[in-house]
Amino acid sequence: MSVLIFVELDEGKIKKSSQEAIFYGAKVAGMMGTAATAVVLGEADSAELATAGRFGATKVLHAADPKLNETNGMAYASVVAAAAQQEGAKVIVLAKSSLADAMAARLAGKLKAGLAANVIDLPQLGDSFRVKRSIYTGKAFAETELTADTKILAIKKNTITPEETDATASVEAFSPALNEGDFGLKVTNTEKATGDVLLPEADLVVSAGRGLKGPENWAIVEDLAKALGAATACSKPVSDLDWRPHHEHVGQTGIKVSPNLYIAAGISGAIQHLAGVNSSKVIVVINKDPEAPFFKSADYGIVGDVFEVLPRLTKAVQAL
């Protein structure tokens, strides 16, 4: 009857968001008087998988079939469903991501499970099973009761801060029969930036808008991001104009982020932009217009020219 946690790797390491999911899942398991089991798909280093123990998992099921190296939501859902069945898991936890979303939806269909997306707090257990989820793109929360027997919780980044111990998890091979029908998609090409901090995973984000005037000026944004170890992001017009790749576009119709720090440079703060970033812990706004709406949603503000302010901030970070 364990709580099952779907864990993702990036470049061979457990993703930060998955560490949060494990810690969250272990807390839920504690509340329910049961253990937390992680499930990992695709080839991976067992020593790395054992580190799931640091965040509270007692066991890791490892489905190492090389066919699962390709991230495939359909095949992943079948394997996670098999793991849930083996473990008798009625609660499945995962951190929101493009892969986890695709997997979780299929899993909900398979298991007829109630799926709560963008969960932002630990559940309330009692006569019912309730979670708080973020809705209207961060403009509100809905206290939601999950009435199905099986529950899937997709947690939003920064829902919980993991505390680490030095425990290790036992790693068990898990080899359910794979379903041919799940492999009907053919990936013909993949383009992925390597070495950069992934935007949805980032604790710190430096974002810039049309105030930067053109793509040739992005070095000052990237320099600050690099000094901080932050990911870069942008407003919608910036990606529409092809100044930056689409996967950096944040907001209502882009990536939703909730980092510890969101720095917005040369972004006016339109409501659709705010919707995707308003659950960031701390927001810094740099804009030359003191009337820019974004200042109303900021914690710290600088009225100034980005071309002067950003390099000064970079220097100050480098001097730390």
Partner: peptide, 29 residues
């Protein structure tokens, strides 16, 4: 149905913004 909303709530408003003069931008860090 498998889920049911019990109640809604709005996020707590952010505190007042702290402004930093541009010529002291380093203070922000």
């Amino acid at each position: 149905t498998l889920t049911q909303v019990v109640s809604y709530e709005l996020p707590a408003p952010r505190g007042a913004v702290k402004m930093i003069p541009a010529d002291q931008a380093e203070t922000l860090i």
